[in-house]
Write a protein that binds this DNA or RNA. Structure first.
Length: 469
DNA sequence: ATGTCC
């Protein structure tokens, strides 16, 4: 007697998605009671008429799940009379980004939006898009790299160390950071985030835990970086005197685990909304009164803890290598959804490539490898939904940047800025980004700049094109 | 962003 597999369950009419997981968990007991063939036949009967099996000894949970899924799928998209309002802070937004922002405000649960000055086209919500909804969460309004975030540590290292090319700071980055899609640490790091109960919340999370642990403390590819730079504080702040400091800045997210969770739930959301017009498909939502939405939120928050842990390990390793002390720090998510209660309803603020900037809230907005980043304090401007840009924003696509630039063209600007680049892809070159000063000028209403960070020793994922080439 | 389509 062969085992019942996913394919058999699908063939019986149980769709992929959460119901499949429930079916799999019911099967062993059912096979013991009924035998393989009757169990399979019962699956087909339940798929056809789940409401007749809510008291079934073996398959009641499956029947309940199929009924709940059908109820959710019944809530069809209805075009609203007018889209919800949004405020545009981006002076040079490309038409594609504006269209994506406007489309997101057609969703039934959309309350309001805001477009940050670094906006550009993404999937679903544009990068630099902020969207407030009620009762729903939208995986593609958080983004593929769930909980992508910044962390800055100010160190008790003399600024002169930044001028020692080939010195100990470079050595720390080369020895203590790992980059690339599948990057792992040779010796597994440890962090309390790996003991979180939510790694057991769903079969997917359970499956992802081990690789996530291997990847704990690594950076990914693309725009992820770990760099040393000069932090200039014109006035006392962050508990520090005014002055010049060496600081460590990292940018990365939830690695493979977050990408898998994003992929899983955005696929599920799209499957649950087959009636959405094509241009809204990547804005498919999950309801917060359904398991799918609650699960996504719980796992998104777990990815928040995990991404934060990755940064913590990176900083611990690099700072430990230098035997230095951390004097102060600033960190923030910029791909995340924040929830709160309003009049008994759950409000969700999605920021996809946007820095939280509530009044007094600290954040880091990087420029590029050859342009300054800024430590900011939010002003809590309601029209911006308490947000600011998450960087300079791309000026051109990765493809265009790869076609138009080579390292020969980039090297002079790195030299001029005193930047030692250890590795990066050419599509991350500074010309591929908007002018950070112009972006900051568009958000003087949203944040106060309290410090300036000039990158000096930069490590990114090696795309096989070193600056020496 | 992601071992880049379970």
């Amino acid at each position: 007697m062969s085992k019942i597999r996913g394919g058999d369950i699908r063939a019986a009419g149980i769709p992929d998605g959460p119901a499949m997981g429930v079916a799999l968990s019911c099967i062993p007991r059912a096979v013991k009671h009924l035998g393989r063939d009757v169990a399979l036949q019962r699956l087909a009967e339940i798929a056809a008429a789940p409401d007749r099996y809510t008291d079934d000894a073996d398959f009641a949970p499956l029947a309940e799940r199929l009924i709940a899924d059908a109820r959710e799928a019944d809530r069809r998209f209805v075009e609203r009379d007018a889209p919800a309002p949004y405020v545009n802070y981006c002076g040079d937004a490309d038409p594609g980004a504006l269209e994506q922002m406007r489309n997101s405000l057609r969703l039934p649960s959309a309350v309001r939006g805001a477009l940050m000055p670094d906006a550009h086209r993404g999937y679903g919500l544009p990068i630099g898009g902020v969207l407030e909804t009620e009762g729903t969460v939208i995986p593609y309004a958080v983004g593929v790299d769930i909980a992508c975030r910044m962390k800055l540590s100010v160190l008790d290292v003399a600024p002169e160390a930044l001028d020692e090319h080939g010195g100990r700071l470079k050595d720390a980055l080369l020895k203590q950071t790992q980059f690339g899609t599948g990057a792992k640490l040779r010796k597994r790091a440890d962090h309390a985030a790996m003991d979180d109960d939510r790694w057991a919340l769903t079969p997917l999370a359970r499956r992802l835990r081990d690789r996530a642990w291997e990847q704990l403390g690594t950076s990914g590819s693309g725009n992820h970086f770990v760099e040393f730079g000069l932090l200039t504080l014109p006035a006392p702040d962050l508990g520090l005197e005014a002055g010049r400091y060496v600081a460590l800045l990292s940018h990365s997210g939830s690695r493979g685990a977050g990408a898998q969770i994003a992929g899983h739930y955005s696929k599920l959301a799209r499957e649950l909304r087959p009636e959405l017009p094509k241009e809204l498909s990547y804005l498919s939502w999950l309801d917060l009164d359904h398991d799918s939405g609650r699960e996504y939120l719980a796992l998104m928050r777990l990815m928040g803890e995990y991404a934060s842990a990755c940064h913590a390990v990176i900083h611990e390793r690099v700072v430990g290598h230098l035997k230095a002390e951390v004097l102060a720090g600033v960190e923030n998510h910029h791909n995340y959804a924040w929830t709160s209660e309003r009049d008994g309803r759950e409000v969700v603020v999605h920021r996809k490539g946007a820095t939280p900037a509530a009044e007094g809230e600290l954040g880091v907005i990087p420029g590029s490898m050859a342009a300054p980043g800024f430590v900011v304090r939010g002003k809590g401007r309601p029209e911006s939904i308490d947000s600011a840009s998450h960087g300079a924003g791309r000026r051109m696509s990765r493809k265009a940047a790869t076609e138009q630039f080579n390292w020969q063209m980039v090297r002079p600007v790195l030299a001029e800025r005193g930047v030692e680049l250890l590795s990066a892809g050419i599509d991350e070159n500074p010309f591929a980004y908007k002018d950070i000063e112009a972006v900051m000028a568009q958000q003087t209403d949203l944040v106060d700049v309290i410090g300036r960070f000039d990158p000096r020793i930069v490590r990114m994922a090696d795309a096989g094109e070193r600056p020496e080439d």
